[in-house]
Design a protein around this nucleic acid. Sequence first.
DNA 1: AACAGGATCAACCGCCCCTGT
DNA 2: AACAGGGGCGGTTGATCCTGT
Length: 298
Amino acid sequence: MVRSNAHEKMELKKGPWTREEDQKLLAHIEEHGHGSWRSLPAKAGLQRCGKSCRLRWTNYLRPDIKRGKFSSQEEKAIIRLHALLGNRWSAIATHLPKRTDNEIKNYWNTRLKKRLTRMGIDPSTHKPKESQGGSAQSRQAAVVSHMAQWETARLEAEARLVRESKLLSKLQLLQKISVPPPPPPACLDVLKAWQASNSGGLFVLDSPTSTLNFSINSIATSGGVGKLNGYEDKGIYNNLVQDDISMNNLEASMDHTLLSSDCYNSGTSSYAGELEDNKNYWNELLNLVSSPVESPVF
DNA sequence: AACAGGATCAACCGCCCCTGT
DNA sequence: AACAGGGGCGGTTGATCCTGT
């Protein structure tokens, strides 16, 4: 009778990592790389599951991690990226050099979320909780509505990009073009897409963290754009699928919303100044995205 | 000094997606 | 096409730290 294999597999340890465990993991990865995470613990002499090792490495031990206080620029980036991407921490993390998704997620949940709530902004939708009177709040509301426009424009752009990408591959198939398509950009996501759209670019979607990693069909089957950051408007989706959106209109819309939206700096300086700051901010962000590897912007 | 409550963050859990067979 | 395994992601938990009384 097979008693149990309990005695064969060591009891896996949980909880906080000790210094010795860290050293073992570090030494093993430095010498052999992590390889298969599942088999790593045995090779490294650790009584942890592979998943735990991976987490420890990616969130703490990796040498290219910046720890400590978030700068105000990083805060701004997180808030705005969250407005665009929602709770997609890994995607947000790709735009914050040396920060982990877990750290960003924690920072959002423990601080930024509360701060926005205190300002009367719903952190999940980035919209004012209720539209009330008062000049400051009505201005804030107006500004936040631009964020919604932004999101709409973003969705339109994403869908268009997917369509164009599909169209391109279909064309290539049909024509049996022997010349390979241009390589995908190194870092391609919403911001990049927007940037490229301004120069009339046409590109293939190929980024592990890209928000463009879905198909039109998947949007349809997953309930439409409602999943994307809470802007539940099936009409948008229908428009995306059925209509050919004018890129010029899209650009104009994005330009307008980009330059207009700033619901997080109210009450300090003049509105015009805020707009200018905001414009500069986005330019900085886009620059950051353009040079993903060594960009100690923050 | 002691305690309570809140804040912070490392780590775990469960689900989903991707890839190979 | 179906299935299994591995890895990644986001949500949540719980231990620890901090601050106010």
